[in-house]
Design a protein around this nucleic acid. Structure first.
Length: 331
RNA sequence: CCGCCCUUAGCUCAGACUGGUAGAGCAGUCGACUGUAGAUCGACUUGCCCCCCGUUCAAAUCGGGGAGGGCGGACCA
């Protein structure tokens, strides 16, 4: 797989394609980042962007993971001390998941975001940004909480992080899109360079196929899940035998979350997927890519129940090292 | 600083005027049906009624105080 393909595969959006093509010409030594609010337990949402980071490393790009302790503080996730403790757990889980320790730089936001130069730039950016714009950028991240001044500062800091971490590329879920667009617009106003962004999709809710998987309620698969938890959660997933399900009665678009998990979590990490099936149902099946599996589900060759069992097995394998790490950390 | 409105189940809200220890829809859980899930049937669960004090035989409801949230307070009309 060539560098451009590694950078863009499974991406929902690439901004801009020309800039990323340029980057792919000579990826060695270039720097890309994702910022995460520290969390004690990684879930599939984190792992989806981590998959992209693994792709980037394979293409020769240096990866920076911003452990965004100051951002989490702004977002009222606890004291800086508490936040840093969970950040350490997060770091350990990322490495267990498969990020290359030699090529991954973990940076605490608080180590540079309180510096004088940064703070001055932040205030300049505050002058250059309307409240309306900052709030719109933050809306996806903020959720239902009442808007505070901290919520307006939050995306402005993300904008500056891209400059201060000396990056060539910003990576994030599609929920980060407005923040990255704000950054692309504002960085030149401070005489800094524009950087491209790559956005991963937001996967559908497991049980309904609608909306987002980790939208507050809903079932989330995380590093904490036992093998049994995984089986139970995957088994209860919405899974019609098709890749584009009909909208529900209220007209909401639906995806097939089981197929999405195969596409975005399983196939990027495994060259071959084996469906173990009793003779009664036709015996084992082997897939080397997502398309073939999706086509078989669509045709009826692969029954959803067998797809689910297989999915749970592979997700379990992906999560196992992180789960073990968590167990160690917690004693 | 001043004024008005809101706070009841996980969510959206009814009930308050005319005190009698709470309801609906959605969600959720469990069965039936499908070799998955959903849909569809059938059953079930859910509450410091924001907090404190007071009135009362009795307070979600009335009175006082407080907290959290929303909105308004130039000019013109």
């Amino acid at each position: 797989m060539d560098a451009y393909e590694l950078l863009t595969r499974n991406a929902e959006e690439v901004v801009t394609d020309e800039e990323v093509r340029d980057l792919a010409e000579d990826p060695e030594g270039k720097r890309a980042y994702v910022g995460y609010e520290p969390s004690g337990v990684l879930h599939l949402g984190h792992l989806l962007t981590a998959n992209k980071l693994i792709d980037l490393q394979e293409a020769g790009v240096e990866v920076v993971i911003l452990l965004a302790d100051a951002h989490a503080y702004l977002n009222e996730k606890g004291s800086l001390e508490e936040i840093r403790a969970t950040a350490e757990q997060m770091k350990a889980q990322f490495l267990a998941y498969g990020l290359d320790e030699e090529r991954t730089e973990f940076v605490y936001g608080s180590t540079f975001q309180f510096d004088e130069a940064y703070t001055r730039d932040l205030h300049t950016l505050e002058q250059a940004t309307t409240m309306n714009r900052a709030q719109r950028a933050m809306a996806e991240i903020q959720g239902d909480e009442t808007a505070k001044v901290s919520h307006l500062v939050y995306p402005l800091m993300q904008t500056l992080d891209i400059e201060y971490l000396d990056l060539d590329l910003a990576v994030g879920g599609l929920d980060q899109r407005k923040v990255h667009m704000l950054a692309r617009e504002k960085l030149p106003e401070l005489d800094y360079e524009v950087r491209p962004a790559i956005h991963t999709p937001i996967l559908a809710d497991l049980t309904t196929g609608e909306g987002k998987m980790s939208s507050s309620e809903g079932v989330t698969i995380s590093m904490e899940d036992s093998t049994d938890d995984l089986e139970e959660k995957v088994n209860s997933a919405y899974c019609p035998p098709t890749r584009d399900p009909e909208p529900d009665d209220e007209g909401n678009e639906r995806e097939n979350p089981v197929l999405e998990l195969f596409e975005y979590h399983v196939f990027p990490r495994f060259d071959e997927v084996v469906v173990e099936r009793p003779e009664k149902y036709g015996g084992d099946l082997t897939y080397e890519g997502y398309e073939a599996l999706a086509a078989d589900l669509e045709s009826g060759e692969l029954h959803p129940a067998d797809a689910k069992g297989t999915l749970a097995t592979y997700l379990d394998e992906l999560i196992a090292p992180g789960r073990e790490k968590l167990r160690e950390i917690r004693g």
